[in-house]
Design a protein around this nucleic acid. Sequence first.
DNA 1: CATTACCTGCAA
DNA 2: TTGCAGGTAATG
Length: 301
Amino acid sequence: MPELPEVEIVARSLDAQVRGRVISAIEKLDWERMVETPDLSTLYDLLPGRQIQSAGRRAKWALITLDAGWTLAIHLRMSGNLVVQAADVEPDVYTHLVLALDDGRRIFFHDQRKFGRVRLLDPAGLQALDQSLGPEPLGSAFTPEVLSLRLAGRRTKIKPLLLDQAVIAGLGNIYANEALWIAGIHPLRPAASLSNHDSERLHAAIRATLTQAIIHEGSTLRNYRNGYGQRGSHQEHFFVYDRAGRACTRCGTLIERIVTAQRSTFFCPACQPETSGEQTEPVEDEHAASSEQLQARTRGS
DNA sequence: CATTACCTGCAA
DNA sequence: TTGCAGGTAATG
C-alpha cells in the first residue's frame, strides 16, 4: 500500500511519538521471514536497550535511527502499518512484530499479507540501501534536468519506469498514474521520447501529486494507517487511479484501464495522447481540475 | 519484457 | 470461484 506519502506520514507520526524512547524488548515476532538482516539471535541481542533518536524515511523505507549507529529499516510493502499503541492494547493475529518501549507503550508492525520486511542496519548497510535507490522526488537534488537525464536513452515505457525505485525513489502505482495524468503524458510512451518540456511537466506533476497526498495524510485504500492508527484521505482526490469508466475531471472523457508491467494503469485517452506534440495541452495548474464541477464539461467527440 | 512467487482477504 | 490489491525479487 504505502508509497512515499504514506511512509512520510508514518515516519512523522512515529517520530512525534517515540523519539527518545528506549526499545525495551521484542515482545512478539511470529513471522520470522520478515527479518532480512541480521539473523534472529543477533536481532534479539542488539535491539533491546537501543534508544530511538528519530524516525524518518528514504524512498518507501521507514527508518528508525537508533543509538550506536544502528538503523531499524522497515518496508511496509503492500499491507503493512506501524502504529504506536498504549500499554493495554493487545496485538491481533496480523500484528507480527511488537516492540516494547520503556514507557509501557508498544510499536505494532501490523501486516495482513506478510510482505513487509525489517532490517537492522549498521552505517555501511544504511549507505548501501541509500545508494541502491534513486533521488528523492521532493528533494532539492531532483530537478527537471535530473529527471530528463534519468529517462534519456530508456526505451522502456514511462509508467513502469516511474515504478523503478532505482530511477526515482518512492513512487508507486497510485502516484505514477496520477503524475502522468497531471502531466498529460500517456503511460505507454517510451521514456526516451519525452521532450524537455514533457520532463518539466512530469517533474512538476510528480512533486504536485506527492505533496498533495502528504497534505491529505496519504491514501487509505484498505490497510494503510498512520502511526496513530488514522486513515489518510487522499483517495478522495484521485484523478485517475481506480477511476476506470468515470469521467476525466479535466475533459469529461472516460478514464481507461489497461495493464502494463502487470500493474493496473489508468489514464485519460484525450488528455494523455499516445504520441507527443498533438492534441490539447493539459492545464498545468493542478488545482484547476481538483473540483468535481469540471466533470460535466465535455470536449471533442 | 513477461511470468511467477510471496500472502491474505475481499468484491464481483 | 476467480480476479484483484498500495511492492519487490527471482526466473525465463
